[in-house]
Write a protein that binds this DNA or RNA. Structure first.
Lengths: 201, 201, 201, 201
DNA sequence: ACCTCCGGGACTGCCCGTTTCT
DNA sequence: AGAAACGGGCAGTCCCGGAGGT
């Protein structure tokens, strides 16, 4: 059930297109039904059969891994783009705002992300390295923003930038985890958080 | 493979004992292997067969639900006990400390809790009401502490107690979610968070 | 879900009442759901638990056997009563009429009877002797009526009474087997059969 | 444990062959052990595993349905072939003879057929449409023969062909149902029936 | 004596990731 | 890349039995 897309030119391009179509279908299914989604269903969503999945990803774990990486990439792109300009303080607040927007969007995409994080530390150990890397990168990014804010004077000098970055990171993760609440409430809570940060920084 | 425990008196008592033994076994298995743990294994851990599980809980979902409730109860007991005395500020910080201690203890118990929260908003919708209730109660508890701190002057008046409580709640949840990191690191990060709060409040 | 019935006098009477209540419930369930009906569903229909069934009948097979005998008794009573008076011919035709009425009544009772017959020659060999006895008795009864008819001159002398009795027996059994058709059709077909017999005898 | 048969040419042919081998094995098992026969056993009889069964039939019900259709087809072929030539009367009598032969052959095949008919009107409602169609077709076929006999003068004009056809149909079904009796007896009874018909028609 | 509660043990359909052949 | 077949595993279900109440 994917858009037909433009006809491919070469054989390699066709393969690449199939591959990405499969990943998209997998993301959609996984987000909706959890990682237990059936191989078959994913394939047929993309207009293929299981064979294609196996051909491209080798195994279910392989697919999950690919999906994980892709999901992370998408999220990172959005967040980084949103926090690319201004003082450190501004960038940090912008990041919070964007996260708020995304988490509050109600798309299952973010549930998928949480699930993947959780499974990485348990059911699917092969994802653990990825998770570790990502978690660290995210945190470092926020710490970096906090440092920048301190350097440019937009964040109070008494605050430890490492602690601030970590805290923002944790709080956003926490909001992500508590996504079961109605969307409106999540949104309101992020706004509260944002205001608090504005007062504190 | 459970401690033999004292022989039961009445029939009802024996049943109750069996039941709680099963829940304990389930908590242990679920924590180690995820919710996919086999029904059989849980039963035999408790020295019983599936028949007993089915008799007491009706279905796997029934068992999971009971486990969820019990796990929440245990966590709440610990946290509340740790934050029971002192000014609002002290209680809030004590709660953070205790959470740090627990999350940093490396027991799989807290991974179980996260997993349950996540599945509640997806694979196991029947848990959703419980989650909603718990999440709300936790948050309210922390907001209550913040309010108390403001009332007794131990927390700065400029800070909105609602926002503070929510933030602490979210940050702790976030630390919980990012538990994949090595224990030492988690512990250090909670300490950083605690220091930051001490400075900010 | 059985009628409360009058309070029993003695212990023995109470037991007898329980027993018959269980048989009734079993007949109802078996008729509706087939012999696969669950033991405890039957018990709870009668307001008891499985233990009671086991106590009274020893096993599922025991219950089925009791049900079988009871069902046969009920059917035989009806048919014999309906064909008790008149010439042989009249009695035979009355028997056909009554069968028509019963089979066309649409109650699941007769489906149960067929099922029992079938299972007796396959899944539940312990019923086979009963079936054999019943089948023979039924046939003999009809042959007897045919003989009587020939003796009293109400049936044409050229016809072999054995063959006639057997044929009527078989035809009625066949109508029973083909009960899946709508009730009205069954009824019509029996009437056709009756007319034919009237012409032929 | 089926004959090895000729090696298949194409893949599709191999699949078709597997499929029919599975159906054959299922017929054999079902006939012997009733519809409760294990999936596994059937598959391994055909030299396959459960996966193949699931692949071809989707579920046990799917398999049962296929078996039903195939069984009906086989029976119909035999009966029709046996009654293909002669006057209406001859054809009708030939049909009775052939049925006698088949029912009296003692193969479990006909028990299977009865069982399927019975379950169709109860435990396996999804078979009901098939049963209805078949029952009607069978009856219509016999009525047709009776009509033909009347038209060609081989059956007495006073008899209603519809009633005659129906009666033959019902009587044969009844003989089928009462198959529990020893083979010799069944055979004798069919012969009696045949003679009676010869006298009456 | 009658019945309930608790639990045992075994069975079986279904599901699903995988591999092989074409 | 598709179609066919594999094979292991698990949840749910069911029939029973025995110990304990009443």
């Amino acid at each position: 059930v994917t858009a037909p897309a433009a006809p491919p030119r070469s054989r390699a391009q066709a393969a690449e297109q199939t591959r990405s179509r499969l990943v998209d279908a997998a993301i959609a299914r996984f987000a909706r039904e959890g990682m237990g989604a059936r191989f078959d269903a994913i394939a047929s969503d993309a207009g293929m059969t299981k064979g294609a999945l196996y051909h491209h990803f080798g195994s279910k774990d392989g697919l999950v891994e690919e999906v994980y990486k892709e999901a992370i990439r998408r999220h990172a792109d959005r967040v980084v783009a949103a926090s690319s300009a201004g003082t450190g303080r501004e960038r940090l607040l912008a990041l919070i705002d964007e996260s708020a927007r995304l988490y509050g969007s109600g798309t299952p995409f973010y549930r998928l992300l949480v699930r993947l994080h959780v499974e990485a530390s348990g059911t699917r150990p092969h994802l653990a390295p990825i998770t570790r890397r990502v978690v660290r990168a995210q945190r470092d990014y926020m710490v970096g923003l906090a440092r920048e804010g301190r350097a440019d004077g937009s964040i109070r000098a008494e605050l430890d930038p490492v602690a601030v970055g970590q805290m923002v990171d944790a709080a956003l993760a926490g909001l992500l985890l508590h996504q079961i609440d109605p969307v409106a409430e999540v949104r309101r809570r992020v706004a509260d958080f944002r205001d608090l940060m504005e007062a504190v920084l």
